[in-house]
C-alpha cells in the first residue's frame, strides 16, 4: 500500500484543489509542463509513410486540418499542469480474475493513465473542435486560475462532478451489474454512475441528476451508454473544458482481454454539445483490472466544504456568466 493511498480524504481533496489552484508545490507529482516550443501548435506532425509507400497510400494518418480561430485561442493558453500517476500494488496470480464473459464488467477498475488536467487533444490527436463560445469559456477559466482566482466548480463544492471527470480521476471504482442495469461505485465524491439497459423494467429514478440520466444498450460486446439531462453544466476536466446541461456524452465501453491476464476497460467518450463544439468529438481512456483494491478509502469532502463558519468552496470564486 503506497503512502499516497493512505492520504486522508481531506488531504486528497486538498491535493485536487491544489491542482485546480495551480499550486504545484502542493501536489507531489504535479509539475508544469514545458511550454510549447513555439512551432505550430496543431499537434504532432503526421508520421512519414513507411518505405515503399507514397503519401496517401492509406497507412499514414491524414494531415490534421488547419486550426480554426477558436482553436487558436486554446493553443495560445498556458499549458495545463501535468499530472503524474502513483503506482498501485500489482495484481498477482492470487487475485480474482475478471469474468470470462466479455459483457461482464463486474469488479474493480482503476484509471491507469495520468489525469489529463485539460483535454487538449481528441483521440486522434486533433484539437477539440471548439466553437468560439467553447474556446472563450476554457480561456476564461484557465486565465482566471492563472491569475489566482480559480472558479467554483462541482468538485470544489463537493458535488457529483459528472461522469467524465468522475471516471478520469485516478481512483478505483467498482462495477456491479445485472441484465438490465449497470452501476459504477466510485471511491471519490461518493460517486455513482447508474445505467439502465431497459428503462421499462429498470427505470432510473426521477428528476435530473448531477451525473445525468444514462441509458445503455449492447452493440456486440460493447456497452453504449448515452448520458443526458445533467442538472447543471459540467466541467469535463480540472481546467474546465465545458459541457452545457443540454450536452450529451456517449460512452462506448468494452472489456479488452489480450490473454495476458491484464484485462482492461476501454471507454471511448463522444462529446456532443453544439453550444461549445462544432461537431461531436472523441476521447479514449483505459482502466486497468484491479481486484486487489476492493476496499475504498473514505472520501468525506463535506467535512471541509460543508463548514458553515469557515471558508467553503475551497476558496474559489464564482464564475462570471457567459
Amino acid at each position: 500500500m503506497t503512502a499516497y493511498r493512505k492520504h486522508s480524504s481531506r488531504a486528497r481533496m486538498l491535493a485536487l484543489t491544489a491542482g485546480i489552484l495551480n499550486l504545484g508545490a502542493g501536489v507531489a507529482v504535479a509539475q508544469m509542463a514545458a511550454p510549447p516550443p513555439g512551432g505550430p501548435p496543431s499537434g504532432n506532425a503526421p508520421a512519414p509513410p513507411p518505405p515503399g509507400r507514397g503519401p496517401g497510400a492509406g497507412l499514414a494518418p491524414p494531415p490534421l486540418p488547419p486550426l480554426t480561430e477558436a482553436q487558436k485561442i486554446l493553443t495560445a493558453l498556458p499549458p495545463p499542469m501535468k499530472a503524474g500517476l502513483f503506482p498501485q500494488p500489482p495484481v498477482t496470480a492470487d487475485d480474482p480474475v475478471s469474468p470470462a464473459d466479455p459483457r461482464d464488467f463486474q469488479g474493480i477498475w482503476y484509471h491507469d493513465q495520468p489525469l489529463e488536467v485539460r483535454i487538449q487533444k481528441d483521440m486522434y490527436g486533433a484539437e477539440p473542435p471548439v466553437t468560439m463560445a467553447g474556446a472563450n469559456v476554457i480561456a476564461r477559466r484557465v486565465r482566471s486560475a492563472e491569475a489566482g482566482k480559480p472558479f467554483i466548480n462541482a468538485s470544489a463544492k463537493c458535488l457529483p462532478p459528472g461522469p467524465q471527470w468522475q471516471r478520469d480521476l485516478n481512483f478505483p471504482f467498482q462495477i456491479v451489474q445485472g441484465k438490465t442495469w449497470v452501476a459504477f461505485i466510485f471511491e471519490e465524491y461518493h460517486g455513482r454512475w447508474n445505467i439502465s439497459l431497459d428503462p421499462k423494467t429498470t427505470p432510473l429514478p426521477g428528476g435530473t441528476d448531477f451525473m445525468g440520466r444514462s441509458i445503455g444498450h449492447w452493440e456486440g460486446d460493447t456497452l453504449v451508454v448515452e448520458s443526458t439531462g445533467f442538472k447543471q453544466a459540467l466541467w469535463l476536466d480540472v481546467d474546465g473544458t465545458p459541457l452545457s446541461p443540454n450536452g450529451r456524452l456517449v460512452q462506448r465501453i468494452r472489456k479488452v482481454n489480450l490473454g495476458d491476464g491484464k484485462p482492461f476497460l476501454e471507454i471511448i467518450t463522444t462529446i456532443e454539445d453544439p453550444q461549445y463544439y462544432t461537431h461531436p468529438w472523441n476521447i479514449v481512456r483505459r482502466f486497468a483490472w484491479h481486484p486487489n483494491l476492493p476496499v475504498f478509502k473514505e472520501y468525506n469532502c463535506e467535512e471541509q466544504v460543508g463548514d458553515p463558519s469557515g471558508v467553503t468552496d475551497a476558496g474559489l470564486v464564482v464564475e462570471t456568466a457567459d
Binding site: 457529483p160 455513482r192 447508474n194 429498470t202 429514478p205 448531477f210 463535506e302
Partner: peptide, 10 residues
C-alpha cells in the same frame, strides 16, 4: 439497483 441521487449538501 438505483437510488435517487441524494446530495445532502444540496
Amino acid at each position: 439497483p438505483f437510488f435517487p441521487e441524494h446530495v445532502c449538501l444540496d
